[in-house]
Write a protein that binds this DNA or RNA. Structure first.
Lengths: 335, 335
DNA sequence: CTGAAAGCGCTAACAG
DNA sequence: CTGTTAGCGCTTTCAG
C-alpha cells in the first residue's frame, strides 16, 4: 500500500524533514536545535535530539553552505603536506582560534598541481586560501581574484600580482648572520644557497652580496647558489675554503645539513638559515637565523580574515622579523 | 526602468543562468560544456567558454555535490600535518591517480580535536576518510559509520570498532631486527621503545619479548618502554649496557636519534624502527626497519574506494611487510 | 540542441 | 513556537 514511501526511505540518509517527522515538530524547530538557537524550549529540544540520535541524522553542510553563501573553511595549499612546516601548524592553530576549519593539500612544487588545487578550493567556495606560491606564472589567479577569491601568500609573494602576503625578513636575517660572524672575527665568509629562481633564495643571496659589499669585501668564490645536490654543495665548500673562507652562511635547513656533513672535522663556523629539529642534533649545535613561524601563521590568518571581511581593502605585505639563535656553530673563531 | 534587474546583478557571483544568458544558449548547454560533455557543438562551446571568461564564472561545487550526492573528496585526519609523513604523501598520490581530491587536517594527538575534525568532514559529506587514529575512545565513530561514513585507519587499528585498516607488520620487523643482530654475533640485545599505551609501541615491545623468549634469552634490564624523554632514554641505555647488552633495537625514529646521541663514541650496534632522513646523516648510517609507505598509502585508498563502492563489504585488515635496510649501524660486531 | 521544471538539504522570511 | 514557502546553484528528466 505504501510501497512508494518505503522505497523512498530505503538507503537514504535522513534529512531534517525526517527528523522533524520523527520528533513530531516543525522543520524550523529542527533547524533551530541543530544550530543551537536558544529560542527553543528544552523539552522540544530533547525530543529533537532524541530523534537525531534515533535516525543517526547528520546535517549536510553542503546544503547549509550553499544556502548561507559561506563555508567557514579555509584552504591551505602548501608545497608538501608531509614535510616539516611550522608555519602551517601556526596557520591551523590561528584558524581554529577563529573557528575556521583549515583543509590542506600539497602542491608538490608543481605549477599545474598548484593550479588544480587552488581552483578546486575555489570551486568548493572556500572562504579563503593560504598559498605557498611556487615558481612561475600565477596568471590563473587573476580571474579567481576577480571572481572574489580571498588569498594570502606565505613565505614568498605571488610575483606580478597584487596579493596580500607575509614573508620573513630575509635581508635582516642575512645581515644578522653576517654581522654575527664578523663579530666573532671572521673576515672571509661564504654563502651557499638554493637555486636563485626561488624567491627566498634570491632574496637571501642578494642580501648576502649586499652585506659583503657593505663591508668592503670581495665576492670571488664566496657565493654559491643552485640546486640542492650533495655534490654541488661539497664543491662549493671546497672552493670557499680554497678562497680563504673561515665561515659559511647557508641558505636553508637542508643545505645546512649538507654543509655540516661535508665540513666534517675541519673547523668552519656555520650560521644556518631556518631552524630545524636537526639543529640541536649536530655538534656543535647549529647557530641559526630562525623564522617566527607563529607570527607568520597568525598574521596570514589575520590578513585573510580582514580580506574576507572587506574584499576591497588595499593589498598588504607584512615582513616578519627573524631571530638569530646562537648555539655554538656560529661562535667558533677563525683558526 | 530595469532597476530591479541591475540591483540583482550587483555584487553577485555569476551563475550558470548568467552564463547561459550571456552566451545566448540554454542552461542545459552550459552545464554540458562545464562538465565537458562531448555532445555539444564546438561553435556553441566556444560561445559558452567566451561567456564564462567574460563573466569570470566559476562553477559552484557545493551545489553540484549537493545535487550529485558525492563530493569526489577524501579527508585525511592525521596526527600532525606539518610533520614528516610519507604515508600521507602516498595517500595523496594514490587519490590523485583515482581522480579524488584529498583534503587534510591535523588532530594534534588530541582526542577531542580528532573528533571535531572527523565529524566536520562527515558533515561536509566527504566520500571517505583516512584516519590515523589516536589513543582512546572512538565510540563517536559508531553513529557516523551507521550513517554511512566510509573510513580506513592507517598505522593502527581503531580499537574496539570493526573498521578497515592497514598497518605495518611490526612483529616481522622486530623479528628481522633481532635476527639481524644475532646473525652479527650479538647475544644480549636491548629494546628501547615508546609508551606502550600507543598501539604500535605495544606491538613492537611484545614482539621483542617474544623474540628474546624464542631465543631462550633473559629479559632483565633489556626492555625499556615509556615516554620519549632524553633522560629516560639515557638511563635505559645505561641500564642495558650494565646488563651486558651489546646491541639495541629502537622503537621509532625519534628514539633512534636519542639513542645515537646518547651512545656517542662507545660502540653499540643499533637497528632502528622507521626510516627517516636522519638515518643517513648519522655515522655510521643507521640500519633500520623501514615501512613500505607507498604500499600503505595505496592500500588505504584501495580499501576506501572499495568501501565507498560497497558499504556492506566485510571489514578488511591489511598488514604490509616491512624491510630491513642494512646501512652500517646494525652490522657492527660485539666488542 | 532548447525550454521548462523538479529536486538535492538546508535557511530564513512570512503569516499564523 | 508551527507550517508553509522561496531560494541557494547546480544536474537531469521530459517534451519539443
Amino acid at each position: 500500500m505504501h510501497g512508494e514511501v518505503n522505497k523512498r526511505r530505503k538507503n537514504r540518509r535522513p534529512t531534517m524533514v525526517d527528523v522533524a517527522r520523527e520528533a513530531g515538530v516543525a522543520l524550523r524547530t529542527v533547524s533551530r536545535v541543530v544550530n543551537d538557537d536558544a529560542t527553543v524550549g528544552s523539552e522540544l529540544a530533547k525530543r529533537v535530539h532524541d530523534a537525531i540520535a534515533a535516525l543517526d541524522y547528520r546535517p549536510d553542510e553542503r546544503a547549509r553552505h550553499l544556502r548561507l553563501g559561506v563555508t567557514g573553511t579555509l584552504g591551505a595549499a602548501v608545497r608538501q603536506l608531509s614535510h616539516v612546516n611550522p608555519v602551517l601548524r601556526a596557520v591551523e592553530r590561528a584558524a581554529r582560534a577563529a573557528d575556521l576549519m583549515v583543509l590542506a593539500a600539497s602542491t608538490e612544487d608543481d605549477e599545474r598541481l598548484e593550479r588544480r588545487v587552488v581552483e578546486s578550493m575555489c570551486r568548493r567556495r572556500f572562504d579563503g586560501i593560504v598559498l605557498e606560491p611556487i615558481g612561475a606564472d600565477h596568471g590563473y589567479l587573476l580571474p579567481e581574484l576577480a571572481a572574489g577569491l580571498s588569498l594570502v601568500a606565505v613565505d614568498r609573494p605571488v610575483l606580478g600580482l597584487e596579493v596580500d602576503c607575509v614573508i620573513s625578513d630575509n635581508m635582516a636575517g642575512i645581515q644578522a648572520a653576517y654581522g654575527h660572524l664578523t663579530a666573532h672575527g671572521h673576515r672571509r665568509i661564504a654563502y651557499i644557497g638554493d637555486d636563485e629562481r626561488i624567491f627566498t633564495a634570491q632574496e637571501r643571496a642578494s642580501a648576502f652580496r649586499a652585506s659583503v659589499a657593505g663591508a668592503g669585501g670581495g665576492l670571488d668564490g664566496m657565493v654559491h647558489t643552485g640546486p640542492i645536490e650533495p655534490g654541488r654543495i661539497a664543491r662549493a665548500l671546497t672552493t670557499a675554503r680554497a678562497g680563504g673562507a673561515t665561515a659559511v652562511i647557508t641558505g636553508n635547513a637542508t643545505i645546512s645539513v649538507e654543509v655540516v656533513r661535508g665540513s666534517d672535522d675541519r673547523r668552519m663556523a656555520i650560521v644556518g638559515f631556518d631552524d630545524s629539529e636537526l639543529a640541536t642534533l649536530l655538534r656543535p649545535d647549529l647557530t641559526v637565523v630562525a623564522q617566527d613561524d607563529q607570527a607568520i601563521g597568525a598574521t596570514a590568518i589575520d590578513l585573510l580574515r580582514s580580506r574576507i571581511a572587506d574584499h576591497g581593502r588595499p593589498v598588504t605585505r607584512v615582513t616578519v622579523p627573524v631571530e638569530l639563535l646562537a648555539r655554538g656553530s656560529g661562535e667558533q673563531p677563525p683558526p
